[in-house]
Amino acid sequence: MRRHDTMMEFGIRIPRYWRGKPFRYRLEGFRCEECGEFHFSPRLVCRKCGGKRLRRDKLSERGRLISYTVVKSASPSFEAYTPYIVGLIRTEDGTTIVGQLTDCDPEELHEGMEVEATIRRLQTDGENKLIAYGYKFRPAIPRP
C-alpha cells in the first residue's frame, strides 16, 4: 500500500519500537525516589518534583477500569482491528494508564471493574508484516 512507502511516519520504526519494549512488554518505567511519581519512559528529571533520582520500577499489573470507549474509526495501523475497546485504568499503585481491553465485550464493561495486564499482538505493520506486541488489559481472574 502506498502509505507504507511514503508515510513511514505512521508505521513502526524498528529502533524506536525496540526502545519502547520495557514499558510495552513489562509496564516497566521510572519512578522518582523523592516523590514516587511514575514515568512511562526514561527520564533525567522527575516531572512532578524535579528530583533527579529515578529508578527502574514496574507498574502493578492489576487495576480498575475508570473509563472506556469503543473505537469505531482508527488510524491506518489499527483500522483493520476496529471496533476495539480502549480503557482508562487506575493500577493498584495509583497510576493511571490507557490501554486496549481484550477478552471481553463492550456490554460487560463497567466502571470499577477489575482488570489485569496481559501481552497481546497490537498490530501487524507494513510490507514486512512486523508484529508489534504490547500490553492490553483483560477482566481480572479473581484472586484465590
Partner: peptide, 9 residues
C-alpha cells in the same frame, strides 16, 4: 508512543 502506538487517537 503511549497512545498512538497503542491504537489510542
Amino acid at each position: 508512543e503511549y497512545t498512538g502506538q497503542m491504537g489510542v487517537h
